[in-house]
Design a protein around this nucleic acid. Structure first.
Length: 424
RNA sequence: GGAGGGAUGGCUGAGCGGUCGAAAGCGGCGGUCUUGAAAACCGCUUCCCGGAAACGGGACGUAGGUUCGAAUCCUACUCCCUCCGCCA
């Protein structure tokens, strides 16, 4: 959520910044509700002031046994008017809140202006795409031939876009989860978390999935509960409505969770393979920092995610999302895209973002500076470190050999009982 | 599922319907003492909104209600705890 004071004082700038995102927003309804609220609030507070004073007078009169009927009668009317104004102010606030919850974050000044993903600049490239003396296959064919991936049977059990791994495939997924968590906890200083995979409406609203993107979520019938689309939601909400100590920052959490996404509106896109699933595993990285540190923290977070790709020897590039491709809550985002030989293209495997105080304001996540009064909102960041299913896909495609076997990267072999190859 | 208890400041925890934003303790900050530190002692320290400030308003789980006036009374809801039952 944007700061209401900032929006009020910079209406035109906010509209312009949101226009750069491609979100044409008219803030006139905001202004109208805001002015109405402030007008009513001024009257309301004046009346409450009067009531407070007169109530004290009444108390004094009663104590000394003097009659107070005149004042009591007068206050009856004042209280009636107060109730009316409270009602009106409440309605204005509801309107304002609804508007503010629907506004996306403002892009950081450094974010390149662009319409969509085609205008995302590539900021770094790592590794050489492998060369094959045969036609590289897509991962779903490799996985099927190895007998470790069975998306047809998964469809029977659940439906399209669900995973079903067997044997070395299941083991590979588990190996990657442990491999990534071990690096992030032992080398990058993250505290490991195993959070709920189902969260309430409040948490979804704090991180920005709600109210606008309900259609992307799986909701439990008969409950106000949702399956998490990413561990960002439970991890960021760990400190919902808390005041952290400055010396505890930055706070860094990592978690393995499955992720559930309805993928509404993506019909026909990536219908084959592991790229776009209703359920997939992901290792998430979440950081809470002081405002002045958050962009250095973003670099750090990005480097942590990159480490995984490098250790696995997977070629990738870093792209910076332009204003038009930025997610709702993010102020700035870098995507990591891994090379997929079977598809002859780079595919997103991690997304690392700084949300600044956007989520912290929605979730009430603050900190207190050492030796100073008052509180400030923290900055929140998160990134995938990495999406596990897509990592499996990348390993299968990059490690494939002419005879149908797949080479396991050396760094992962200890997690695979020392095996060097996946064979049919 | 059944029975009971509870929700108050960063934390623990008091609080007859009327100077209660709230006792006390802990923690934090500043000071005295000390070569320094600790201890001891003194002072300050809830959060949010408006305001340069003075000051004003609000918040005691949430939402309503009663009342001139609610942390205190009533209703509903949410969450937590204890016991019983069931259960991976």
């Amino acid at each position: 959520m944007l700061d209401i004071k900032y929006v009020r004082q910079n209406l035109a700038e906010v509209e312009a910044a949101l226009a750069r995102r491609g979100a044409g927003v008219d803030l006139h309804p905001f202004r109208a509700a805001d002015e109405e609220r402030r007008r009513d609030l001024a009257e309301l507070e004046a009346l409450r002031h009067r009531r407070n004073r007169v109530s004290a007078d009444i108390a004094r009169l009663k104590k000394s046994g003097d009659p107070a009927e005149t004042l009591v009668g007068e206050m009856r009317e004042v209280s009636q008017r107060i109730r009316e104004l409270e009602q009106r102010v409440g309605e204005s606030e509801e309107r304002l809140n609804e508007i503010l919850l629907g506004l996306p974050n403002l892009p950081h000044a450094s974010v390149p202006v662009g319409r969509d993903s085609s205008e995302n600049p590539v900021v770094a490239v790592w590794g050489e795409p492998p060369r094959f003396d045969f036609e590289p296959r897509p991962h779903w064919e490799i996985g099927a031939r190895l007998g470790i991936l069975d998306l047809e049977r998964a469809a029977r059990i659940a439906g399209a876009r669900f995973p079903l791994y067997f044997a070395a495939g299941a083991r590979l997924e588990r190996a990657l989860i442990n491999f990534m968590l071990d690096i992030h906890t032992a080398e990058h200083g993250y505290r490991e978390v195993l959070p709920p995979f189902i969260v309430n409406r409040r948490s979804m609203t704090a991180t920005g999935q709600l109210p606008k993107f309900a259609a992307d979520l799986f909701k439990l019938e008969g409950w106000d509960y949702f399956l998490i689309p990413t561990a960002e939601v439970p991890l960021t909400n760990i400190h919902q409505e808390e005041i952290l100590d400055e010396e505890d920052l930055p706070v860094a959490y990592t978690a393995y969770t499955p992720c559930f996404r309805s993928e509404a509106g993506s019909y026909g896109k990536d219908t084959r393979g592991l790229i776009r699933q209703h359920q997939f595993n992901k290792i998430e990285l979440v950081r809470f920092s002081r405002p002045e540190d958050s962009y250095a923290e973003l670099e750090r977070l990005l480097a942590h995610a990159e480490t995984i790709l490098r250790r696995l020897g997977l070629p990738y590039r870093v792209v910076e999302l332009c204003t038009g491709d930025l997610g709702f809550s993010a102020a700035k985002t870098f995507d990591l895209e891994v090379w997929m030989p079977g598809q002859n293209t780079y595919r997103e495997i991690s997304s690392c973002s700084n949300f600044e105080d956007f989520q912290a304001r929605r979730g009430g996540i603050r900190f207190r500076r050492k030796g100073r009064k008052g509180t400030e909102l923290v900055h929140t960041l998160n990134g995938s470190g990495l999406a596990v299913g897509r990592t499996v896909a990348a390993l299968l495609e990059n490690g494939q050999r002419a005879d149908g076997t797949v080479e396991i990267p050396p760094a992962l072999r200890p997690y695979m009982n020392g095996a060097e190859l996946l064979r049919p």
